[in-house]
Design a protein around this nucleic acid. Structure first.
Lengths: 177, 177
DNA sequence: AGATACATGTAAATGGTTACATGATTCC
DNA sequence: GGAATCATGTAACCATTTACATGTATCT
């Protein structure tokens, strides 16, 4: 039950339709909470019946109409309450890590190929994040506060995650070189 | 469908009962693939009917009997095939990251407390991993190969993950100090 | 007999993934 | 009319989490 809250955060940043949220998720918040449009529509529907969000049909020129969602005061309360709750430390779930550990029970060369493919992908992601950083925060976090500072810091986290993967997978490959 | 494969790896390292696997998971592989005993029993049952593992009842002195599972040749083939498959780069899922980003929509002091609690927990985990490292690999990875090297490298990954969290959360706290 | 640790499970609910379905609008 | 994009959804399946249930063996 946490996609709900991730969507509330996204909608408080900026109201939007299901598809817009799905696109925004594939950037920003989705870096730490992936979600598909199917999932998002379902949760938006549920949150509407619970009164956490309100909908309004918005006509568009050149495109079909869309339903724009916004957070209600009740929804804002739910979000605030959730934010103050303790979050228990979540263990990372990584299929690749299982493969790293199990490599000796299969064809090691094949596993190393899988690792190399993942490493390349993490390099692409890191480059992408660094470009966002350059584009949006040329001066670093100076003068940032509130939401903007949080957005910056979460992007920093995204960069740190990719650096973690690159360093670890590189260590793995070198150890098996 | 990957707990199956994580269990196959664990069983190839060392055959064992459901509860033993659950305990081992809370160490080692479980650092990257958490699983409860309920889940493990269910998957073991399924894998047995599929012929990937075999069972034998083992009597114990001073304890109730247990069912020890081992990987069959068919299971070993399944595992080897899976290891060679590409794994797509999985996006990390973190509730805490959503809270970091949403902090300005609630009581920031409360969110900072949540962050501090998580940071403390990651320190505990890191200390634990470092102790394992000291106990099992006093000389570093020298002379390690095959399974042992992989085990070492996955522990290195665990340490790197905790370092990532500590650095990121510390940066977050300092930026909001 | 009661407490504790070991051991194996079932059932219900929740959440996430994958495949499929439908319709509006614009451009060619 | 057909292809492409935008937009919203349903249904079936699979995986995970949480709560509950049962029984063995040992120790006091």
């Amino acid at each position: 039950m946490a996609l709900d809250h991730a969507l509330l955060v996204a909608l408080r940043e900026q109201p939007g339709s299901g598809l817009e949220l799905a696109k925004r998720f594939s950037r920003s918040i989705g870096y730490f909470w992936p979600a598909t449009h199917q999932q998002i529509y379902k949760v938006l529907g549920r949150m509407e019946t619970e009164g956490w969000v309100s909908v309004s049909e918005v006509a568009q020129t050149g495109k079909p109409a869309k339903k724009v969602y916004d957070v209600t005061p009740a929804g804002a309360d739910v979000l605030a309450a959730w934010l103050a709750e303790p979050t228990d430390t979540h263990t990372m779930r990584s299929e690749l890590a299982v493969k790293l550990r199990g490599a000796s029970f299969g064809d090691r060369a094949a596993v190393l190929d899988v690792v190399r493919a993942n490493l390349a992908d993490h390099h692409v992601r890191l480059d992408h994040y660094r470009q966002l950083m350059k584009r949006d925060y040329t001066d670093g976090p100076v003068d940032l506060a509130g939401l903007e500072l949080d957005q910056y810091l979460v992007l920093r986290g995204g960069i740190r995650v990719e650096e973690f993967w690159i360093e670890w997978l590189t260590e793995y490959l070198e150890a098996h070189a």
